[in-house]
């Protein structure tokens, strides 16, 4: 079983973001990047499948700039991925999911994965598309919002999340692309041994220029900005004791629940 996992590097969820003066993107110079949340669940699921099956290989794949992409790929290797592919990109980043998908496809087509996992969506662009684009380009079967997996010879049976707490099991033939929803498993932490071992594992470098597709860009944006807020909120201010007293008053006199 050969499983590829698409992993994106995104700003940490607590990061405070500043927009560049020309509004083209955020200022990345002081930001810490981490593995996209649903991608870390995708990686864990791939590792668990290979462990359950008793053999196979997990390949972590990421497109992005240095040094953050190497950091995230090393983390994946430390957790147990066998090797990695780094598609090296420098700003301005490609944001059209179709183009990104074509580039990733070109970089990994020769791997002939049985399974390719991606996160449900990235926490920066949130297109929710990239993994499926790659899958469609490679003629693979697809299933999204996956919350459990079961291997069945040349098929995989997956539990898909539907809206409003409904679920559905779907069986698809391999090779297949799955987009993984958060909560499918409990991602592991890298062990010390894993971290040491990761240094010796291979990261194949693929310059983006070498895998550019023939197709043209289909969507783009010019600038990013902070949304206008329509706050109607009454803000309760003061030190902790005052705030608590005012909250009790609101509960008692305004919302009338006490």
């Amino acid at each position: 079983m050969k499983i590829g996992v698409l992993i994106k590097q995104v700003p940490g969820s607590e990061a405070s973001l500043r927009i560049l003066p020309d509004h083209s993107w955020i200022d990345e110079s002081t930001l810490e990047f981490e593995m996209n949340e649903s991608d870390s669940y995708a990686l864990e699921e791939a590792l668990q499948i290979v462990e359950r099956e008793g053999d196979g290989e997990v390949v972590a794949i990421s497109m992005g700039p240095e040094p953050r992409t190497t950091k995230v790929l090393r983390e994946a290797l430390a957790k147990g991925a066998h090797r990695a592919i780094h598609i090296v990109e420098s700003p301005p980043y490609e944001i059209d999911p179709l183009l990104v998908g074509h580039i990733i496809k070109n970089a990994i087509a020769e791997e002939h994965f049985d399974l390719l996992f991606s996160g449900l969506q990235s926490n920066d662009l949130s297109q929710g598309q990239t993994g499926l684009v790659v899958g469609e380009l490679l003629g693979m079967n697809t299933a999204t919002l996956v919350m459990a997996t079961e291997m069945q010879d040349d098929h995989i049976r997956v539990k898909r999340e539907l809206e409003g707490r409904w679920f559905q099991w779907v069986t698809i033939p391999l090779p297949a692309v799955l987009t993984i929803q958060s909560g499918i498993n409990q991602p592991r932490y890298p062990s010390l041994k894993g971290i040491m071992g990761a240094k010796k594992k291979e990261i194949r470098i693929v310059p983006k220029e070498t895998v550019l597709p023939e197709v043209e860009k289909t969507q783009s944006f010019g600038s990013i900005y902070i949304p206008q807020k329509e706050k109607k909120t009454v803000m309760i201010e003061g030190d902790a004791t005052t705030v608590v007293q005012k909250l009790v008053d609101v509960f008692k006199h305004e919302i009338k629940i006490l």
Partner: peptide, 23 residues
């Protein structure tokens, strides 16, 4: 932008090579 649309429209976009501007 329903769960179902998430499930298949990226593939339509790919097949037609036309943009899916999502969410």
């Amino acid at each position: 932008h329903s769960y179902r649309v998430r499930d298949f429209v990226p593939r339509v976009s790919t097949r037609l090579n036309r943009p899916f501007i999502s969410d």
